[in-house]
Amino acid sequence: MVSAVERIEQDLGKMEEAIAYLASQLHDSYATYLTVLGQTVQKQLPEKIHPSTLTVVG
Results as ranks from 00 to 15, higher is better:
residue 1 M to Y: 09
residue 1 M to L: 14
residue 2 V to Y: 10
residue 2 V to D: 08
residue 6 E to M: 05
residue 6 E to R: 10
residue 6 E to G: 09
residue 7 R to V: 01
residue 10 Q to I: 02
residue 11 D to R: 05
residue 11 D to K: 00
residue 13 G to Q: 06
residue 14 K to T: 09
residue 14 K to L: 15
residue 15 M to A: 09
residue 16 E to V: 07
residue 16 E to C: 03
residue 17 E to M: 02
residue 17 E to F: 00
residue 18 A to N: 10
residue 21 Y to E: 02
residue 21 Y to D: 01
residue 22 L to W: 06
residue 23 A to I: 04
residue 24 S to P: 00
residue 26 L to G: 01
residue 26 L to P: 00
residue 26 L to W: 03
residue 26 L to T: 13
residue 28 D to E: 15
residue 28 D to R: 11
residue 31 A to C: 15
residue 32 T to E: 12
residue 32 T to F: 03
residue 34 L to D: 13
residue 35 T to I: 05
residue 35 T to V: 04
residue 37 L to G: 01
residue 38 G to S: 09
residue 38 G to N: 14
residue 38 G to A: 04
residue 39 Q to D: 11
residue 39 Q to K: 13
residue 40 T to G: 03
residue 41 V to W: 06
residue 41 V to D: 04
residue 42 Q to S: 13
residue 42 Q to A: 10
residue 43 K to I: 13
residue 44 Q to E: 15
residue 45 L to S: 02
residue 46 P to W: 04
residue 47 E to F: 09
residue 47 E to L: 13
residue 47 E to T: 09
residue 48 K to A: 12
residue 48 K to T: 03
residue 49 I to W: 05
residue 50 H to K: 15
residue 50 H to I: 13
residue 50 H to C: 07
residue 53 T to N: 13
residue 53 T to W: 06
residue 53 T to V: 14
residue 53 T to L: 09
residue 54 L to Y: 06
residue 55 T to W: 00
